[in-house]
Write a protein that binds this DNA or RNA. Sequence first.
DNA 1: TTAGGTGCAAAACCTTTGCCATCCC
DNA 2: GGGATGGCAAAGGTTTTGCACCTAA
Lengths: 128, 128
Amino acid sequence: MLRRSKQREAILDFLRKTSSHPTAYHIYEAVRKEIPNISLGTVYRNLRLLRDEAEILELDLAGSLSRFDGDTRSHYHFRCEQCGRVFDVNEPVDLERNERVAKKTGFRVSHHILEFRGLCRDCQTSMA
Amino acid sequence: MLRRSKQREAILDFLRKTSSHPTAYHIYEAVRKEIPNISLGTVYRNLRLLRDEAEILELDLAGSLSRFDGDTRSHYHFRCEQCGRVFDVNEPVDLERNERVAKKTGFRVSHHILEFRGLCRDCQTSMA
DNA sequence: TTAGGTGCAAAACCTTTGCCATCCC
DNA sequence: GGGATGGCAAAGGTTTTGCACCTAA
């Protein structure tokens, strides 16, 4: 049912060739050099398709909208992919990791964000 | 210069009392029970203020817009908070961690997302 | 032939902003 | 008084969608 289209192929090609983690708009601009009248809507549609087919990765898949927390201490989170709820996770925060990555990359690392994804208890039972 | 206002206090109160990691709109709905004519714009303004004062945490602060990656193998990222660029990080992916959290929480953990934040090399030098 | 894909434009969503009235200090 | 705030509504930026027209299988 998934047909080939030069638009989708151009998008996938570009993503496979670059390591720049582009936004949808970046991709649109790049692919437009090859297919000048491609539309941004098509880019979005195909990105979604490719992501669903696991051909590409969407970073920060996040519910996209921001969430806020009254607890400012550094801690990790779990996000249920079914219901979207966010829970705190009591894993120790590994600060050495920042050091290690800083040393390896030359970047200055101020902190890191760790989020677990999956199904919360409620959603596991309601799917059973 | 930061004055008190019942709107801001109601927002902070609510965030301190809940552990539900609400969205801006959730907060708006909750606070509206107390201050019926508060506006969504005010909620956003105060969330930003409180975040800047480090009174609350904004999760997934993310560049908000999605980024895509042609490499679907599990790997970690570094995001520069100055220029917004995203880089791959060659840290080993710790799969046992998913196990550990699953056991502890009862959630089904399919994967985790780890993102380092800070300044890339270019931005460090250009700020010096 | 025909389900899937495209372009275009409008809509939907979330967030920010301008303006003016109001409130604290 | 005067700067900080708030309410309202309009604007901004990103993503999705409806629709009529194509196109690959």
